[in-house]
Protein backbone atom coordinates (compact mmCIF):
# COMPACT_ATOMS: atom_id res chain seq x y z
CA UNK A 1 0.00 0.00 0.00
CA UNK A 2 1.74 3.12 -1.28
CA UNK A 3 0.58 6.47 -2.62
CA UNK A 4 0.73 4.99 -6.14
CA UNK A 5 -1.69 2.21 -5.18
CA UNK A 6 -4.12 4.68 -3.62
CA UNK A 7 -3.95 6.89 -6.72
CA UNK A 8 -4.51 3.81 -8.92
CA UNK A 9 -7.74 2.94 -7.06
CA UNK A 10 -8.79 6.59 -7.21
CA UNK A 11 -8.10 6.77 -10.97
CA UNK A 12 -10.06 3.57 -11.67
CA UNK A 13 -13.10 4.84 -9.71
CA UNK A 14 -12.86 8.23 -11.45
CA UNK A 15 -12.72 6.59 -14.90
CA UNK A 16 -15.71 4.35 -14.08
CA UNK A 17 -17.65 7.44 -12.98
CA UNK A 18 -16.66 9.29 -16.15
CA UNK A 19 -17.81 6.35 -18.27
CA UNK A 20 -21.15 6.38 -16.43
CA UNK A 21 -21.59 10.11 -17.06
CA UNK A 22 -20.86 9.68 -20.78
CA UNK A 23 -22.80 6.49 -21.44
CA UNK A 24 -26.02 6.50 -19.39
CA UNK A 25 -29.29 8.00 -20.58
CA UNK A 26 -31.04 8.26 -17.21
CA UNK A 27 -30.28 11.51 -15.38
CA UNK A 28 -30.39 9.69 -12.02
CA UNK A 29 -27.58 7.32 -13.02
CA UNK A 30 -25.57 10.27 -14.37
CA UNK A 31 -25.80 11.92 -10.92
CA UNK A 32 -24.80 8.62 -9.28
CA UNK A 33 -21.72 8.48 -11.53
CA UNK A 34 -20.87 12.07 -10.61
CA UNK A 35 -20.94 11.07 -6.94
CA UNK A 36 -18.56 8.19 -7.75
CA UNK A 37 -16.16 10.72 -9.29
CA UNK A 38 -16.38 12.93 -6.17
CA UNK A 39 -15.53 9.86 -4.07
CA UNK A 40 -12.48 9.15 -6.23
CA UNK A 41 -11.22 12.70 -5.66
CA UNK A 42 -11.66 12.37 -1.90
CA UNK A 43 -9.71 9.07 -1.91
CA UNK A 44 -6.82 10.86 -3.62
CA UNK A 45 -6.90 13.70 -1.06
CA UNK A 46 -6.91 11.30 1.89
CA UNK A 47 -4.15 9.22 0.30
CA UNK A 48 -1.91 12.25 -0.19
CA UNK A 49 -2.58 13.26 3.41
CA UNK A 50 -1.52 9.81 4.59
CA UNK A 51 1.55 9.16 2.43
CA UNK A 52 3.13 12.49 1.52
CA UNK A 53 4.52 14.86 4.17
CA UNK A 54 3.16 18.34 4.76
CA UNK A 55 5.68 21.04 3.90
CA UNK A 56 5.66 22.41 7.44
CA UNK A 57 6.88 19.05 8.77
CA UNK A 58 9.92 19.07 6.46
CA UNK A 59 11.17 22.54 7.41
CA UNK A 60 13.97 22.92 9.90
CA UNK A 61 12.04 25.42 12.03
CA UNK A 62 11.12 24.37 15.58
CA UNK A 63 8.13 22.08 15.46
CA UNK A 64 4.84 23.72 16.40
CA UNK A 65 1.33 22.41 16.94
CA UNK A 66 0.31 24.28 13.76
CA UNK A 67 2.91 22.35 11.76
CA UNK A 68 1.65 19.05 13.17
CA UNK A 69 -1.98 19.91 12.36
CA UNK A 70 -1.01 20.83 8.79
CA UNK A 71 -0.53 17.09 8.17
CA UNK A 72 -4.35 16.86 8.26
CA UNK A 73 -5.06 19.50 5.59
CA UNK A 74 -6.01 16.72 3.18
CA UNK A 75 -8.69 15.52 5.58
CA UNK A 76 -10.18 19.02 5.84
CA UNK A 77 -10.13 19.24 2.04
CA UNK A 78 -11.94 15.88 1.89
CA UNK A 79 -14.64 17.13 4.27
CA UNK A 80 -15.17 20.28 2.17
CA UNK A 81 -15.48 18.18 -1.00
CA UNK A 82 -18.03 15.90 0.72
CA UNK A 83 -20.07 18.93 1.89
CA UNK A 84 -20.12 20.49 -1.59
CA UNK A 85 -21.01 17.13 -3.17
CA UNK A 86 -23.89 16.66 -0.71
CA UNK A 87 -25.29 20.13 -1.49
CA UNK A 88 -24.86 19.47 -5.20
CA UNK A 89 -26.65 16.12 -4.99
CA UNK A 90 -29.65 17.68 -3.20
CA UNK A 91 -29.88 20.44 -5.82
CA UNK A 92 -29.42 17.97 -8.69
CA UNK A 93 -32.33 15.82 -7.50
CA UNK A 94 -34.54 18.91 -7.20
CA UNK A 95 -33.68 19.61 -10.85
CA UNK A 96 -34.49 15.99 -11.77
CA UNK A 97 -37.91 16.26 -10.07
CA UNK A 98 -38.62 19.58 -11.83
CA UNK A 99 -37.71 18.04 -15.17
CA UNK A 100 -39.82 14.97 -14.48
CA UNK A 101 -42.83 17.16 -13.68
CA UNK A 102 -42.34 19.18 -16.87
CA UNK A 103 -41.68 16.33 -19.29
CA UNK A 104 -42.65 13.02 -17.62
CA UNK A 105 -39.12 11.84 -18.38
CA UNK A 106 -35.70 11.88 -16.80
CA UNK A 107 -33.68 10.99 -19.89
CA UNK A 108 -30.96 13.43 -20.87
CA UNK A 109 -31.83 13.14 -24.56
CA UNK A 110 -35.21 14.76 -23.72
CA UNK A 111 -33.50 17.70 -22.02
CA UNK A 112 -32.01 19.34 -25.09
CA UNK A 113 -34.04 22.56 -24.80
CA UNK A 114 -33.72 25.23 -22.15
CA UNK A 115 -37.39 26.31 -22.31
CA UNK A 116 -40.24 24.01 -21.43
Amino acid sequence: MTIENVLLVSAILFAIGAYGVFSRRSLIVVIMSLELMFNAVVIAAVGFSRFTPAAALLSSDPLTAEAIRSALTGHVFAIFVIAVAAGGAALAFALVFAMYRARESVEITDASEMKN
Binding site: L7, L8, S10, A11, I12, F14, A15, I16, A18, Y19, V21, F22, S23, R24, R25, S26, I28, V29, E107, I108, T109
Partner: peptide
Protein backbone atom coordinates in the same frame (compact mmCIF):
# COMPACT_ATOMS: atom_id res chain seq x y z
CA UNK B 1 -34.55 1.02 -17.07
CA UNK B 2 -31.49 3.10 -17.66
CA UNK B 3 -30.72 2.66 -21.32
CA UNK B 4 -27.25 3.56 -22.57
CA UNK B 5 -26.92 6.44 -25.03
CA UNK B 6 -25.84 5.89 -28.61
CA UNK B 7 -22.12 5.98 -29.23
CA UNK B 8 -21.09 4.97 -25.76
CA UNK B 9 -17.90 3.51 -27.25
CA UNK B 10 -16.75 7.12 -27.46
CA UNK B 11 -17.53 7.54 -23.77
CA UNK B 12 -15.62 4.37 -22.94
CA UNK B 13 -12.65 5.58 -25.00
CA UNK B 14 -12.63 8.93 -23.19
CA UNK B 15 -12.83 7.16 -19.81
CA UNK B 16 -9.90 4.87 -20.73
CA UNK B 17 -7.89 7.92 -21.84
CA UNK B 18 -8.59 9.64 -18.51
CA UNK B 19 -7.57 6.46 -16.66
CA UNK B 20 -4.35 6.14 -18.69
CA UNK B 21 -3.40 9.78 -18.06
CA UNK B 22 -4.08 9.52 -14.32
CA UNK B 23 -2.22 6.22 -13.91
Amino acid sequence: GSRPVQGRAVGAAVAVLILAALV
